[in-house]
Design a protein around this nucleic acid. Structure first.
Lengths: 240, 240
DNA sequence: TTCCCGGATAAAGTCATACGATACGAACGG
DNA sequence: CCGTTCGTATCGTATGACTTTATCCGGGAA
């Protein structure tokens, strides 16, 4: 994850949010020197390292003489935790949220199935501990959110499939954002979500793969529906 | 993608392959200056930019005064095209291949279902053109491989889900590697694969999501089986 | 008129150097 | 023997100069 303490990290963050918000397909960035001098006063070193950092994530591509351009969106690594975080900060539109939930719907049930089949005792203990963390803390409080994230992350770890585990950060970012959204007062959904989680835990505990997958599907769908409802409510607020 | 023309790109490649092959969990990297001076004669700028590039992909983490360390494998972005390519170059072990095919098995059928439901006429034309490209060229020739990759990529594009599309490069890298492996003489598999592809194309053409998903599952499973058989044969060769 | 070639040019790439800050360890003193 | 302090190693940042490369444009040839 991006370290905001370092100067180059701050520059990278600033550039990234601008790029994502701007959404230019192949627009050229400001000339290096002008950017450095006018916008932010930072050395060439820090700026270049920030650009290289973003290059690694597919956000920009620099070519001599032609300038540093914003890369086409297809080459952005949308599953990268940093890129995802920047998206939520810059432009959390509904389409993007739906797409992410759709991805969850494809991946998480399968992950749950694998977890049920392959979990060790330790894996189960971690998942169960995370679930307990969700029950003992107040709804939507910080520890509860962390426990929720841990729950899903632990399931991914239990799959013993490293490439698959790479999707965990993306899933967690989605969950975190949706929980942040519904902070106010959705008590009813919270208890329903708790039940969903418990049922998944139970299936994994029983080593029943199909059951775990089905219940995880239910969990994701419930989560999506409540998020969309909140999003719609918020849209109404903004309109009225 | 990493540009091998630039010096920092070569340094990044060298470092990355070394890291992945070495597989040290949290081992400290060589001291900057010693590395620069002895191994490769390159300026500090180029080295640092390479490190920043790798930092963006989660391979290393540099902490002030403590040294630049190899990041724990969980934070590597295994789905990144560059990281994947480095893996195939450095350490293409069977477990890794199986994991990637497992991921394909979870993701591609769902993608095919979406593609069948949402495809435009243009999408279908692209998929069909790719399929034709596979039939008119000789088996396992370069154009055939490219057509195969285009086939799967076009399906991902037809899903209209950008985050999901980010998995396309990973899928394509897996396919490319497995095709490269079976270059010699697996005529039988090739025709079978062709049939698999045609059936998927047909289902997408009919807008039958469930059928497309089922047939894509079959395609991936067939591909996995033939790849594993080749891998086993190769292992026997090495042993004998 | 059109096409091709080559030089001017601008921007990124690379290099060398310097200074600052801090984590880690070693030496020193109590 | 333990704690403090000081030195060293290493990363972060800054700066200026030089190199490489790709685009653009103008001139000459077909």
């Amino acid at each position: 994850m991006l370290n905001p303490d370092r100067l180059f990290g701050q520059v990278a963050h600033k550039l990234a949010v601008g790029i994502i918000r701007g959404g230019s397909a192949a627009g050229e960035l400001l000339p290096n020197e002008a950017d450095i001098r006018s916008e932010i006063s930072v050395s060439r070193t820090a700026y270049r390292e920030a650009v290289k950092f973003l290059t690694g994530k597919g956000l920009v591509e620099a070519r001599p003489k032609s300038g540093t351009r914003v890369a086409p969106r297809e080459s952005w690594n949308l599953l990268d935790p940093d890129v995802l975080a920047w998206h939520f900060e810059a432009d959390p539109n509904e389409k993007f949220i739906r797409d992410l939930f759709e991805l969850r719907l494809f991946v998480e049930p399968s992950a749950a199935r694998l977890a049920a089949q392959r979990r060790s005792a330790d894996d189960l203990a971690r998942i169960e501990a995370a679930y307990r963390g969700m029950t003992v803390n107040p709804p939507y409080a910080e520890p509860t959110v962390q426990a929720d994230l841990s729950f899903h992350e632990a399931i991914f770890e239990a799959t013993r499939n490293p490439p698959l585990q790479c999707l965990a950060p993306a899933v967690c970012a989605t969950i975190q954002w949706s929980l942040f959204l519904k902070a106010p007062d959705d008590r009813f959904f919270f208890t329903a979500s708790l039940v969903d989680h418990e049922r998944v835990l139970d299936a994994i505990s029983q080593r029943d793969g199909d059951l775990a997958a089905a219940r995880m599907s239910g969990l994701v769908i419930d989560s999506l529906n409540s998020t969309l409802r909140l999003l719609a409510g918020r849209a109404l607020e903004n309109a009225g």
